[in-house]
């Protein structure tokens, strides 16, 4: 702790000279980056004439909830949320289970060549979606899962990124600990549940949030599978506003976009540190 504080002090001495110019750059960039989000939320509370009159100003003197009310009438928002939630839950739960099991096996089950299997998983992280899009669509059609929520979830029940991160976290567990438990005749599943899971809990929670947000935000794959409007997820419903660039849908589209963003936003506010922490460790380290 003291060493760290000492380091920080030295850090300040050396760097504080030209710091203000970097602070200016960062603050300006931050304002530009946050503007679209504030704009989205602000506009969702404006009347149409207000939107046209307000220029760059994102705030309004007379906020209105009319846009939200109209969205709830024109799109069955609760159904949209429910559909998104069903898919996100299936995907998240399944991804976390498959990732934990596979990572445990790769780390502690004395495979002959774990690095080869792991390598294959890792490579699949980079397979462009465009290459697998058509065959997967055909496979699901053949299974009769076209136009079903399960069809959206099915190809995503396992995740290479999840295996990558959770394995990374499991590798920090000393192997002798597991081996000792094995010698005491403890089964693998018990070791996983009693010893390993509690130790990798932070990574698991972060991955749960990551999977959930990703699935919630997904657009392309649900678009291909879900054609019937009553199955639309909330991101798909946004598309129905795109046909009218005339401006009449301006406020209500921002209202729906805000609703779609609420869920990831709330998760982020609660787990900001965990999410950022996991991503900061995600770089490839050799």
């Amino acid at each position: 702790m003291r060493i760290r504080r000492e380091k920080e002090r030295r850090n300040i001495q050396i760097h504080s000279k030209g710091e203000w110019k970097y602070q200016v750059i960062l603050i300006v960039s931050l304002i530009i980056m946050m503007y679209p989000i504030v704009y989205m939320i602000g506009t969702s509370f404006k009347t149409l004439s207000d939107i046209f009159a307000s220029g760059l100003n994102v705030f309004t003197a007379n906020p209105t909830t009319a846009n939200y009310r109209s969205v709830f009438v024109s799109n069955d928002v609760l159904r949209l949320l429910r559909n998104s939630l069903i898919i996100a839950l299936i995907v998240t739960i399944s991804k976390i289970i498959t990732s934990v099991l596979a990572s445990y096996c790769l780390c502690f089950m004395n495979l002959k060549h774990p690095e080869i299997i792991f390598g294959l998983f890792t490579v699949s992280m980079f397979i462009p979606f465009s290459v697998i899009m058509i065959p997967n669509y055909l496979t699901l059609s053949q299974m009769g899962l076209n136009n079903t929520l399960l069809g959206v979830a099915l190809p995503q029940l396992a995740d290479a990124m999840g295996i990558y991160r959770i394995r990374q976290s499991m590798r920090s567990i000393p192997k002798p600990l597991i081996e000792a438990a094995r010698l005491d005749n403890v089964g693998h599943f018990t070791i996983l549940r009693r010893i390993v899971l509690p130790l990798v809990k932070p990574a698991v929670i972060a991955m749960i949030i990551f999977f959930f947000i990703n699935s919630w935000n997904e657009f392309v794959w649900p678009m291909l599978i879900l054609k019937r409007e009553e199955l639309y997820t909330i991101t798909l419903a946004l598309q129905t506003f795109m046909d009218s660039e005339s401006g009449s849908a301006w406020g209500s589209s921002m209202a729906l976009a805000t609703i779609a963003t609420m869920v990831p936003m709330v998760l982020y506010i609660f787990a900001q540190r965990k999410i950022i922490g996991t991503f900061m460790q995600s770089g490839v380290k050799e």
Partner: peptide, 21 residues
């Protein structure tokens, strides 16, 4: 923390916001 924020949005949300921007 704040600069990560836009990465939480769906690309579909980003598209619709930038269409109006």
């Amino acid at each position: 923390a704040l600069m990560f924020f836009p990465s939480l949005l769906s690309l579909a949300v980003a598209a619709i916001v930038f269409m109006w921007l």
